Simulated assay, not measured.
Amino acid sequence: MILDFDDLYTTATVPWDLGEPQPAVVALDRAGRLSGAVLDVGCGLGDNAIYLARKGFRVTAIDAARPAVEQARRRAAEVDIDFRVADATDLTGFAGRFDTVLDSALYHCLAEADRGRYVTALHRATKPGARLNMLCFSDQKIGPVPSPLPVPERNIRDTLTAGGWAITDFAPGELLARTEPSREFVEQYPEAETDDKGRIAMPIWIVQANRVT
């Protein structure tokens, strides 16, 4: 599945626009997984970046979709965040800058041929000892609900290891999506539960890894 994210952010309300950070990102912060200079890669509309900046982190947030970055800048008008339009599989100009990476739902959007380039680019952009936190759609289910872009565990493990990352934790988790913008998908699973804000939980892998020098 190839998505035109410029078009999505221009013409539609995206399912992952919660207007607040993903709970899984908040949990990573509370677990002490983020520190120092943070790269929010594939930042979308910026809610995770805004949350982290307000918690005191130095945040650089990038996305390849210019409409997303423009909206994120407006949303974060009073928050100090360095928003950039950038290719996550390249990251030229960011060498050795970051202590922490947050990938909240980017990896699974990349073509298989780009995933190795991506994790290698993250390695170049980070400092020795840096931490990677990845939220990626899994090939599991939450009740009846699968993910729309499933990625098997072995794919992530092999790609990260080859790209210079040592996995320290790999666990199932949840990513929330608004049901109204994703109605065509949600209607396939009428028995699926939603929360009090009309959001559905989709299955992800929560992956933690350390940069190998």
Rank of each mutant, 00 (worst) to 15 (best):
A162L: 12
G116Y: 04
P23L: 05
F94D: 01
F170A: 10
A113V: 15
E184C: 08
R33C: 14
P146H: 01
V151A: 08
N48I: 00
N210T: 14
E174R: 09
A111H: 07
V212G: 08
V85D: 13
R58H: 05
V69R: 03
F57G: 10
D90Q: 14
A95H: 15
D40F: 07
L34M: 11
A192V: 04
A177E: 05
D139G: 11
A95L: 10
R154V: 15
D4M: 01
T159Q: 06
M1W: 14
A171H: 00
R117A: 15
Y51I: 00
R75C: 10
A49Y: 00
F94Q: 06
T100V: 11
Y118D: 05
N155P: 04
I142Y: 02
A64M: 06
R154T: 15
Q140N: 11
E112R: 09
S147I: 07
P190A: 13
K127Y: 09
D17Y: 00
P148V: 13
L175V: 07
N155W: 06
R84S: 12
G32P: 02
A113F: 08
I206R: 15
A68L: 01
G19D: 14
D99P: 10
T11G: 02
V41E: 04
P172E: 12
W165P: 00
T100Y: 09
A65W: 00
P150C: 11
T179Q: 14
E78P: 06
P190H: 14
L3H: 07
P172W: 13
L149T: 10
T120I: 11
L149Q: 11
V38H: 01
T10S: 11
K127R: 15
P128F: 13
R97L: 14
V79G: 09
A61K: 06
G19A: 14
L102Y: 01
N155Q: 15
A177T: 01
T168C: 11
T120K: 15
A177P: 01
C136E: 00
A125P: 09
G93R: 07
